[in-house]
Simulated scan of single mutants.
Amino acid sequence: MLIELIILIIIILVVIVFVYLYNSLIQLRNRVKNAWSQIDVQLNRRADLIPNLVETVKGYAKHEKTVFEKVTEARSGLMNAKTVQETAEANNMLTDTLKSLFAVAENYPELKANENFLKLQSQLEETENKIAYSRQFYNDTVLMYNNKCQMFPSNLLANSFNFKEAEFFEIEETKREVPKVEF
Results as ranks from 00 to 15, higher is better:
Gly77Arg: 11
Thr87Lys: 13
Glu110Ala: 12
Ala88Phe: 10
Leu98Pro: 07
Asn116Asp: 14
Glu126Cys: 00
Ala103Lys: 11
Ala74Thr: 04
Leu124Asn: 05
Lys65Cys: 03
Met93Glu: 12
Leu124Asp: 05
Gln121Leu: 03
Asn92Tyr: 00
Glu110Trp: 00
Leu78Phe: 10
Leu101Tyr: 14
Phe117Tyr: 09
Val84Tyr: 02
Thr72Arg: 10
Asn114Trp: 05
Glu115Cys: 12
Val57Asn: 02
Val71Thr: 06
Tyr60Leu: 13
Glu106Ile: 03
Leu101Asp: 08
Leu124Phe: 12
Leu101Asn: 12
Leu118Arg: 14
Val67Leu: 02
Val84Gly: 01
Ala103Glu: 10
Thr72Ala: 14
Ala113Ser: 15
Ala90Lys: 04
Ser76Lys: 12
Thr66Ile: 02
Asn80Cys: 10
Thr97Leu: 02
Gln121Val: 04
Glu86Val: 10
Asn107Trp: 09
Asn129Glu: 14
Met93Thr: 11
Glu73Phe: 04
Glu69Gly: 00
Phe68Met: 05
Leu124Ala: 08
Asn114Leu: 06
Leu94Thr: 03
Gln121Ala: 04
Ala90Pro: 04
Lys62Val: 07
Thr66Ser: 13
Glu110Leu: 10
Gly77Pro: 01
Leu118Gln: 14
Lys119His: 10
Glu64Ser: 11
Gly77Thr: 06
Pro109Met: 11
Phe117Lys: 00
Thr72Glu: 09
Glu125His: 09
Asn92Thr: 07
Glu89Val: 15
Lys70Tyr: 09
Asn80Ala: 15
Asn92Ser: 15
Asn80Leu: 15
Thr127Trp: 07
Thr83Arg: 07
Val57Cys: 01
Leu111Lys: 00
Leu118Ala: 07
Asn107Phe: 10
Pro109Trp: 09
Val57Phe: 02
Lys65Gly: 07
Lys112Ser: 08
Ser76Arg: 07
Glu110Ser: 14
Asn107Pro: 06
Ala113Asn: 15
Glu73Ala: 15
Ala103Val: 09
Lys70Cys: 05
Glu73Trp: 02
Val57Trp: 00
Phe117Leu: 02
Leu120Phe: 14
Ala88Gly: 06
Pro109His: 09
Thr87Glu: 00
Glu106Gly: 11
His63Asn: 13
Lys70Leu: 09
Gly59Cys: 06
Val57His: 02
Thr72Asn: 12
Leu111Ala: 00
Ser76Leu: 08
Val71Tyr: 08
Asn114Glu: 11
Lys62Ser: 12
Asp96Cys: 07
Glu86Cys: 12
Ala81Asn: 09
Lys82Trp: 04
Ala81Asp: 05
Val71Phe: 06
Tyr108Phe: 13
Thr127Met: 08
Glu69Arg: 02
Glu110Asn: 13
Ser122Leu: 06
His63Glu: 08
Met93Asp: 09
Lys112His: 04
Phe102Gly: 01
Glu115Gly: 11
Ser76Ile: 03
Glu69Asp: 15
Asn91Arg: 11
Glu69Tyr: 04
Glu69Ser: 14
Val84Cys: 02
Lys58Cys: 03
Leu78Met: 15
Ser76Tyr: 06
